[in-house]
Design a binder for these strands. Structure first.
Length: 717
DNA sequence: GCGAGTTATGTTTTT
DNA sequence: CATAACTCGC
């Protein structure tokens, strides 16, 4: 390795880079130069004679994979991106790797390699169907809940239907088991995998087929996994299998930045690393090269409030800078306005817009910020890539392409069979479905056999035949490049015509589709062997941050989750209020664990900032159309000296400031109860001295209280 | 079969 | 408040 590069590393970083063989755990705090270490490590491996294609690096997003790819090229390591040529290092997300493995070993995994990847919308359809098929009602078995249980409790923990059957002992669990079973068979019928299946099927393949496991372990002689604290059980099993022949695993992560427990990430993976690989070398990177001491002090005093945590220091290396600013505003509009004004002030000081970012807890918060930025004519970008793919016109065109690749994909077929309108309505579809069910055929096969469906009259038969012919015609081009086929489908399906005729909104839609087609053309150009299957499977794994355009000079707006792994000179974190951060849906749980995850999320946000950090909350916020008084986040009081009474008295909300003389309550009032604490009035039933107040408390529980006994007091502003 | 208009419903974070 | 599901009249 070049001496100049060597010079750039600290002793700990060098140790992490040059410990080549055997298991290595890099516990890397925020801003510790972790990404640099990983890319240098890839270069060092190749320097020491390892073949590039024997290296497999796993990142958290495609964006991170692409960046690592670029950096590795600069270092001369000639790594490839998510697409696999065979002679270069494999750098991708876990999900992309699984797609690759499942396509390689489709026969062994007993799946058709043309599988569709179902996103949450598709999943919701299937789970609703499954619940209905099990003759259970959706009130007692809410589809969203069922899906969450199946995804996070079962699939991510590699509990398949059979395993679950064996342990399901009460009525509810048995019902869930039936739903799970039905859901999986619906997916199988449609030759579709959901996000969890990608991991679970791969993990099972590696567990059940020792030869496949051995082959892959020989292929990937060195495995690097970034953000290891956010891996789940399935990913752990896959990693363990890949390194089974050599134990050359290098994991990097930070337990304090674990923010995906809610979707199955298991912090024990990183905690137990040393017992999983007893000869593991552990390197700690505690020096922080990113943020000023001012920012790190705030981050540190926040995160020490987590009980369930190993102590770890943030060691600043930068000079002191600006103090962290914490402000209160009257409402979210003023808060956003203040952000915009601060942006302008910074711009006046010569700061580029690309060096500023605004973080929030929920996507809905982006709207009011957007308004303020538009009003002040400040260029911005909302970092939300999947939004594009959720547009109706995009989903429609993609549904055509999916149906061409995988005719068993009933969701895609049903979406396009009458889009644009071609006179195939609900009755016709029901009749085809009935025929398919009766003759145990797939929906598409039934469509092909439309002439033998007696319940249909001549006209619908002809329309269906035309539709099938059109799809079959498209199929001839499935092997080649994607963009030309997409273009052809767009025109010949009639989608373009129908959009053209639907007024000015239609033109926007056409432009969006054109954008999709140019993106596909880029894919065709950048991929050695472009294919429609590969393209569809790739874009299904697209993440929000993948759309982040770092080349344009705009302020970035994104959720705290999306901000993970990024850094900015100037950071704004808005809406730091009880119910929002921590989010009410997380503090509603019994356990502190969810509150601690929210705290880690805030910690992640804070530690993205390099030189300036602005934290704010609004005293009033309109939530679902209701103007509500907010409570400042408990986290604000944990930030150390910054948010104390002497400096922030007028902005600081006083918890003891309430009076006891109020007997009239209104919906939305903030109240305090002796034992339940703070809460908000949901309903006031006025019956004189027997009045009942329904209160939703901060603990998450909702109580109906008799006013005269409750000892409720209204909390004043 | 189709679309407009109405009513119910459900609200975090994401690969 | 925003979207999905549903009804009704053509």
């Amino acid at each position: 390795m070049h001496n100049a590069l060597w010079q750039q590393l600290t002793p700990s970083q060098r140790k992490a880079v040059f410990h080549i063989e055997g298991p290595l755990l890099v516990l890397a705090g925020p801003g510790s130069g972790k990404t640099r270490v990983i890319t240098y490590r890839i270069a060092a491996l190749i320097d020491s004679g390892v073949q590039p294609h024997n290296i497999c690096a796993i990142t958290f997003t495609n964006k991170a994979a692409n960046e690592m790819h670029q950096r590795a090229i600069v270092l001369g390591a000639s790594a490839e991106g998510p697409r696999f040529a065979g002679t270069q290092s494999h750098i991708s997300t876990f999900h992309s790797l699984c797609v690759r493995i499942l396509r390689w070993y489709a026969d062994r995994a007993e799946i058709n390699p043309n599988f569709s990847i179902y996103d949450e919308t598709d999943q919701a359809r299937c789970i609703k169907h499954a619940v209905k098929d099990c003759e259970l009602d959706t009130t007692n078995f809410p589809p969203a809940r069922m899906l969450d249980a199946i995804s996070n409790r079962l699939k991510n923990n590699l509990i398949d239907v059979n395993k679950f059957k064996a342990i399901a002992d009460d009525f509810f669990t048995q019902a869930l088991c039936r739903i799970y079973d039905r859901y999986q068979s619906i997916l199988a019928q449609q030759n579709a995998l959901d996000f969890d299946d990608l991991l679970m099927k791969t993990a099972c393949l590696l567990q059940n087929c020792p030869d496949v496991c051995g082959e892959l372990s020989n292929r990937f002689k060195f495995l690097l996994i970034d953000e290891y604290q956010d891996t789940n059980r399935a990913q752990y099993v896959i990693a363990k299998a890949i390194v089974s022949q050599h134990n050359n695993i290098c994991a990097t992560g930070d337990p304090d930045q674990s923010i995906y427990r809610w979707r199955g990430a298991d912090i024990r993976n990183i905690i137990n690393f040393e017992s999983d690989w007893p000869n593991a070398v552990v390197v700690k990177l505690e020096e922080n090269f990113r943020s000023t001491p001012n920012i790190l002090t705030v981050a540190d005093s926040l995160i020490v409030h987590n009980q369930n945590r190993k102590e770890k220091r943030l060691v600043p290396t930068k000079q002191s800078g600006k103090d962290v600013v914490i402000s209160a505003f009257e409402n979210e509009a003023e808060e956003s306005q203040a952000v915009a004004q601060q942006v302008e002030e910074l711009t006046g000081e010569g700061v580029s817009l690309r060096d500023m970012a605004v973080f929030y807890r929920v996507n809905a918060q982006s709207r009011v910020l957007e308004e303020a930025f538009i009003q002040n004519k400040i260029p911005y970008q909302i970092v939300r890539g999947v939004e594009f793919y959720n547009r109706k016109e995009i989903r429609n065109l993609l549904a055509y392409l999916k149906a061409i690749v995988n005719p068993d994909d009933e969701i895609a077929l049903l979406r396009i069979i009458n889009t644009p309108a071609r006179g195939i309505g609900k009755t016709t579809i029901d009749r085809v479905s009935a025929y398919a069910g009766l003759h145990k055929k797939s929906f598409f096969d039934a469509l092909k056999k439309v002439q033998s469906i007696d319940s249909l009259s001549h006209a619908p038969k002809a329309k269906i035949a035309g539709f099938v012919n059109m799809l079959e015609g498209f199929k001839k081009d499935v092997a080649g490049k994607v963009a030309p086929l997409a273009e052809r489908v767009f025109t010949e399906s009639g989608l373009e015509k129908s959009l053209r005729e639907s007024g000015p909104d239609g033109q926007d839609a056409i432009d969006n589709v054109k954008e999709l087609i140019s993106a596909a053309a880029l894919y065709d150009q950048q991929t050695e062997q472009p294919s429609l299957v590969d393209y569809l499977q790739q874009i299904a794994l697209f993440s929000d941050v993948d759309a982040y355009d770092t080349s344009s000079n705009r302020v970035a707006l994104m959720t705290l989750h999306t901000a993970k792994g990024l850094e900015f000179e100037n950071v704004f974190i808005v809406g730091v209020e009880e119910g929002l951060l921590p989010h009410e849906r997380s503090s509603a749980g019994e356990k502190d664990e969810e509150l601690e995850e929210e705290r880690r999320l805030f910690f992640v946000g804070i530690t993205r900032a390099k030189s300036a950090l602005y934290i704010s909350y609004a005293r009033y916020r309109t939530i679902r159309g209701q103007l509500l008084r907010t409570i400042p986040s408990q986290f604000l009081f944990e930030l150390g000296t910054v948010f104390d009474e002497s400096t922030q008295k007028e902005q600081c909300y006083d918890y003891d400031d309430y009076n006891e003389s109020n007997w009239q309550f209104d919906t939305g009032d903030l109240v305090r109860h002796k034992s339940f604490g703070l809460g908000r009035v949901k309903e006031f039933i006025d019956m004189g001295e027997n009045s009942v107040v329904v209160v939703k408390f901060n603990s998450g529980q909702t109580k109906s209280l008799l006013l005269k006994y409750a000892g409720l007091s209204k909390v004043n502003i």
